[in-house]
């Protein structure tokens, strides 16, 4: 098990499988607000869902309304268990997670998460500001 440091923006604790996007996310256009599926036809995770996953992505881009998508997902129980921004914590993600009580952390050095694989088991521990990575 690997332990890496993170910076906590919205507190909480989550344990689950990682879903990793290596490219930035526009929540409004790329994520289905009804069920959490990645609906962007050009994204290599097309058809996968954020629901009950720990969603790892660099940061969000584009629409300011993306924050409401995170809130809608939470209301429909289709949201991620936690989010990990691997580059920086942007305002859309931070505000969407804060209003929805989705634990949210970010990493200052993205390379430490490059080795991470989809479906790998993670623990996001906001209180201790650490992520535990379990071997596959």
């Amino acid at each position: 098990m690997n332990k890496i440091k993170c910076i906590c923006i919205v507190k909480g604790f989550a344990k689950g499988e990682a879903l990793i996007s290596n490219t930035p996310i526009n929540f409004l256009t790329m994520i289905d607000a009804e069920n959490g599926e990645i609906k962007d036809l050009n994204h290599y995770l097309y058809g996968k869902t954020l629901k009950d996953k720990i969603f790892v992505f660099p940061y969000s881009v584009g629409s300011s309304v993306g924050a409401y998508v995170l809130y809608s997902l939470k209301k429909k129980s289709a949201g991620p268990l936690a989010v990990v921004c691997s580059n920086k914590m942007d305002i859309t993600t931070a505000s969407g997670c804060a209003i929805s009580n989705i634990p949210a952390v970010y990493l200052k050095h993205r390379n430490i998460i490059d080795a991470l694989k989809n479906s790998q088991a993670l623990v996001v521990d906001g209180e201790r500001e650490q992520i535990l990575i379990y071997p596959n």
Partner: peptide, 14 residues
């Protein structure tokens, strides 16, 4: 309180 939670989150993020 929620409004300030949002401001705190984006304040810490930036």
């Amino acid at each position: 309180a929620s409004a300030y939670r949002v401001l705190l989150a984006i304040g810490q993020a930036t």
